[in-house]
Amino acid sequence: MTDTTVPFRYSPIVDRPPLSWPGGARVAVHIGLNIEHFVPGLPSTSIWPGTADLVPDALNHGWRDYGARVGIWRTIDVLDRHGVRPSALLNSLVVERTVLREIVETIEAGTGTRPRGWMGPGLTETARTPELLAELGFDHVLDWTNDDQPYPLTVPGMLSVPYTLELNDLLLFARGVTGPEFVRMVCDQYEQLRADAAGGSGRVLALALHPFVIGQAFRTRYLDEVLGWLTAQPDAWITTTDDIADHYRAVTEPGRVAGPGER
Rank of each mutant, 00 (worst) to 15 (best):
T2G: 00
T4W: 10
R9A: 12
Y10L: 02
P17W: 10
L19P: 08
S20C: 03
A25F: 02
P49Y: 10
L54R: 15
L59K: 04
N60F: 07
N60L: 06
G62A: 09
G62H: 07
A68L: 13
R69T: 01
G71F: 02
I72E: 10
T75Q: 04
D80T: 02
R81H: 00
G83Q: 04
S87A: 05
A88D: 06
V94Y: 13
T98V: 12
R101T: 07
A109L: 02
T111R: 02
M119A: 12
M119N: 12
G122L: 07
L123C: 11
E131H: 08
G137A: 10
H140A: 13
V141H: 15
P152S: 11
P152K: 10
P152Y: 12
L153M: 14
P156W: 15
V161G: 01
L172Y: 10
R175N: 15
R175K: 13
V177K: 10
F182E: 11
V186D: 15
D188C: 09
Q189C: 09
Q189G: 13
A195H: 11
L205G: 13
Q216S: 02
T220K: 10
L223A: 01
E225R: 11
V226R: 01
L227D: 01
T231M: 00
A232F: 02
Q233T: 01
A236C: 07
I244Y: 00
G255W: 12
P260H: 05
P260I: 01
G261I: 03
